[in-house]
């Protein structure tokens, strides 16, 4: 990774593309927590890639690259969310009220508990913490740096999110 970062700093776009591709699962999973459709997720990832490339020379410690790019991604997701989703959510809520729809069932077609859908039942912040922690490589310290949250707070919140998840699965099981 460090070699690719060095090349990118010298203007090698191909190296940077390879670098981002090595993190594509992480970026996709994190953006999926914040945004609901694939077009917006891809936009957020593209903007993240372009913005981070423009500022790659400012990155002093290559080891911090992953945390750094996740922060940029979260900001991009926030911009897209503010632009599109607040109004859309409002309209969706109106539709739900008018049609008396129930919340989405978290069971899949066979009636089994879908872990992924159970995660969606958590608060957005909890979903994000679960995603960052279980995507491997991200420690509590790294998560605390990315989200600017106290280390102990991260630890508490991840544990709490897990307990909630367990409750959701047990109650619906």
């Amino acid at each position: 990774m460090e070699e690719l970062i060095d090349k990118a700093k010298k203007g090698d776009k191909e190296a940077y593309t390879l670098l981002i591709q090595s993190l594509e699962k992480d970026l996709y999973c994190i953006a999926s927590v914040k945004l609901n459709n694939i077009e917006d997720i891809n936009d957020a990832i593209q903007e993240t890639m372009l913005n981070s490339y423009r500022n790659i020379k400012k990155l002093k410690d290559p080891k911090a690259f992953k945390s750094w790019i996740i922060k940029i991604l979260l900001n991009e997701c926030k911009k897209i969310y503010a632009r599109k989703y607040k109004i859309k959510e409002l309209l969706d809520k109106i539709t739900i009220i008018c049609n008396n729809k129930n919340d989405d069932d978290i069971r899949d077609i066979e009636g089994k508990i879908d872990l992924e859908k159970a995660i969606k039942r958590l608060k957005k912040e909890e979903q994000l913490l679960i995603t960052l922690y279980y995507l491997e490589d991200l420690s509590y310290i790294e998560i605390s740096r990315i989200l600017n949250i106290n280390y102990n707070t991260v630890k508490t919140k991840v544990l709490r999110a897990k307990e909630k998840l367990k409750d959701i699965i047990e109650k619906e099981g």
Partner: peptide
């Protein structure tokens, strides 16, 4: 909770990235 840990790690390990996302990165520049 330990069982849940295993399930969660497995879930993210097996996550697939959609082809459109892979292409979006490829075409970004």
């Amino acid at each position: 909770l330990n069982q849940l840990d295993k399930q969660l790690f497995e879930l993210y390990k097996n996550k697939k990235v959609p082809p459109s996302t892979h292409n979006a990165i490829k075409q970004a520049f």
